[in-house]
Amino acid sequence: MSSTRRTAIVAGVLFLVTEIAAIGGLALYRPLLSDAGYVLGPGADTQVFLGALCELVLALAVTGTGAVLYPVLRGRGEGAAVGYVCGRLLEAAVILVGIVSVLSVVTLRTRAQSATGADGASLVTAGQALVAFHDWTFLFGPNFVLGANTLVLAGLMYTSRLVPRPLAVLGLVGGTLICASATAVLFGIYEQVSVAGSLAALPVFAWEVSLAVRLLARGFDEGAGVGAGAGSGSAVGDRTAGAAAAVV
Rank of each mutant, 00 (worst) to 15 (best):
E19R: 11
I20D: 02
A22E: 06
I23K: 09
I23V: 15
G24E: 11
G25A: 14
G25V: 12
L26Q: 09
L28F: 13
Y29G: 02
P31Y: 15
L32P: 10
L32Y: 05
S34R: 11
D35A: 09
D35V: 06
A36H: 09
A36K: 00
A36F: 07
P42R: 00
P42E: 11
A44N: 13
A44D: 04
D45S: 09
T46Q: 07
V48M: 14
V48E: 05
F49E: 15
G51W: 03
L56C: 01
L56P: 01
L58W: 05
L60D: 01
A61P: 11
V62A: 05
T65W: 03
T65R: 06
A67D: 03
A67M: 02
A67Q: 04
A67T: 04
V72Q: 12
L73F: 01
R74Q: 15
R74K: 15
R76H: 09
G77E: 04
A80N: 02
A80S: 09
V82S: 03
G83P: 03
G87T: 08
R88E: 12
R88G: 13
E91T: 02
A93F: 08
V94S: 07
I95C: 11
L96D: 00
G98H: 04
G98P: 05
V100L: 10
L103Q: 14
S104D: 14
V105W: 15
T107V: 13
T107H: 10
R109E: 06
Q113F: 09
Q113P: 00
S114C: 08
S114F: 06
S114Q: 14
A121N: 07
S122V: 09
L123I: 08
V124R: 03
A126G: 05
A126H: 13
A126I: 11
A126P: 02
A129M: 09
A129F: 06
L130F: 08
V131P: 02
V131C: 11
V131Y: 15
A132S: 15
H134W: 15
H134A: 14
W136N: 03
W136M: 07
T137V: 07
T137Y: 11
N143V: 15
F144D: 04
F144M: 09
F144Y: 08
V145N: 12
V145E: 13
N149P: 02
N149I: 10
N149H: 10
V152R: 01
V152T: 11
A154I: 06
M157V: 05
Y158G: 03
Y158M: 05
Y158L: 08
S160Q: 12
R161N: 09
L162A: 05
V163T: 07
V163L: 13
V163C: 04
P164I: 12
P166L: 04
